[in-house]
């Protein structure tokens, strides 16, 4: 995936190393392989490669890793904006 780089500095991924217990679950599930374990603590290698899928957050037993997950899709975001204007809540997905 090195050929594909998206916008820098936009990603919401954060890791609280105090809370990390070094279980390694996040390292297993990350589809972009940007997490690794060293001396029972997780580290992020390149945060800009994160696509905010949320797999690491869902599999962290101590909520040490957080991200604002979602679908990176223009149609979805337009629907979200329209809903905010109209005060609706249901977003019909695109996939």
């Amino acid at each position: 995936m090195d050929t594909f780089r998206y916008i820098e500095g936009a990603v919401t991924l954060q890791l609280d190393q105090e809370a990390c217990i070094g279980c390694g679950s996040c390292v297993v599930v990350c589809p972009h392989r940007i997490l690794y374990l060293e001396q029972r603590k997780a580290y992020i290698t390149n945060v800009d490669l994160c696509m905010e899928c949320g797999a690491c957050q869902a599999n962290c037993p101590t909520e040490a890793i957080t991200v604002d997950p979602g679908v990176g899709c223009a149609a979805y975001i337009i629907a979200k904006w329209v809903n905010r204007l109209l005060g609706r809540e249901i977003v019909k997905g695109c996939c």
Binding site: Y6, I7, A10, E52, C73, I77
Partner: peptide
């Protein structure tokens, strides 16, 4: 092209919102 972001496996929602 912007619409194709939804089909890729590397675009983050924060990034898509930023570029939109």
């Amino acid at each position: 092209a912007m619409n194709f972001t939804g089909s890729t496996p590397f675009t983050s929602p924060s990034g898509v919102e930023y570029e939109m």
